[in-house]
């Protein structure tokens, strides 16, 4: 199981030097009009302003007072904590083909991002969603901020099993109902679902002022359509629908074309909504994905 790899010390050591590529300074807006940045406690100087009664004397710039004989206050950009949610698709399609272990790869990426997020003491959680018997089941861990708490994710990560249908829209609905402050949501899925559902879900996340990042998980075997040749009954793992088809080179080519189309379409949707899109292909490529692919796309730095 690949998700266990995310808790191995050797693997975690490689993540120690990485941080999440998320925006911490947020512009306060009222409708379409920008009101300015959020100021407050922080270490990054923002500006100077004249002292006014009631200001915190700790921020008086005594050097400026000595030079100009005016009480000046130094202001700082607020040091904002971001809530990061790694939202993992745990539908049945993530469990197939078994050799690809897409769910393991998705959970390992989610846990890795959580570990990386903890480097900045950001509040991090991992959630898994799937539709069971018509009801969306969104399970998520509590927020954890410090790396000492990272191992608290392990029981949850190890307990997630593939099953049910993918309904990204329903999962986002349930997530938004929690009314958390806008943060960063990393959606990790194979996106084998209706493209309108994908677009709708991502749009609503963006509309809720979340910073959304998408990791498109794909299996190696699935990508090349490595199926045996012959007449088979093909069963959809999520819907149970059965279709008889002749598997062979022509079929494999058609499947590969379809996978490429899905990837292109998801990428288009992400581009359209300014969402960072990354592909994670192959469970054996976990480390290169974390160390090279995600930094290349700015999801981690």
């Amino acid at each position: 199981m690949l998700e266990a790899r995310a808790f191995e010390p050797e693997f975690l050591r490689k993540l120690d030097r990485l941080v999440l590529g998320i925006k911490r300074a947020r512009t306060v807006r009222a409708g379409q009009r920008a009101l300015g940045r959020i100021q407050g406690l922080g270490i990054e100087p923002e500006n100077f302003k004249a002292y006014a009664p009631g200001d915190d004397l700790r921020f008086l710039d005594w050097n400026a007072f000595a030079r100009f004989d005016e009480l000046m206050l130094r202001t700082y950009r607020v040091d904002r904590q971001v809530e990061v949610t790694a939202l993992v698709d745990a539908s049945a399609s993530m469990g197939l083909p078994e050799r690809d272990d897409k769910l393991g790869l998705a959970l390992a990426i989610g846990a890795s991002l959580a570990y990386i997020g903890m480097a900045d003491n950001d509040a991090v959680r991992i959630g898994a969603f799937a539709m069971h018997r018509g009801a969306m089941k969104l399970d998520a861990t509590p927020f954890h901020r410090r790396r000492e708490s990272y191992l608290n994710f392990r029981p949850f990560v190890m307990s997630v099993k593939a099953g049910g249908e993918t309904r990204l829209g329903a999962a986002v609905d349930q997530l938004l109902l929690q009314r958390r402050p806008a943060g960063t949501v990393v959606v990790i899925s194979d996106f084998l679902v209706n493209e309108s559902d994908v677009e709708d879900a991502l749009k609503r996340l963006v509309a809720a002022r979340h910073e959304v990042k998408v990791v498109h998980v794909m299996g190696e075997q699935e990508s090349i359509a490595a199926y045996p040749s012959g007449l088979f009954r093909v069963r959809d793992a999520e819907t149970g629908e059965v279709r008889e088809t002749v598997l062979g080179p022509a079929t494999a080519a058609a499947i590969r074309r379809k996978i490429e189309k899905i990837a292109v379409r998801v990428r288009e949707i992400c581009t359209m909504h300014a969402i960072t899109y990354a592909q994670a292909v192959g469970a054996g490529n976990l480390e290169s994905i974390i160390e090279r692919e995600l930094p290349r796309l700015g999801i981690v730095r």
């Binding site: 469990g95 084998l192 059965v242 008889e244 088809t245 079929t251 379809k258």
Partner: peptide
């Protein structure tokens, strides 16, 4: 009961040329 394969999604087979039949 001839060989059956469970796949992640039949979406992948949308462009397969000739499915024989689809049965529940």
């Amino acid at each position: 009961s001839r060989p059956a394969i469970e796949v992640s999604s039949l979406m992948l087979f949308d462009e397969v040329p000739a499915p024989v039949a689809s049965v529940r």
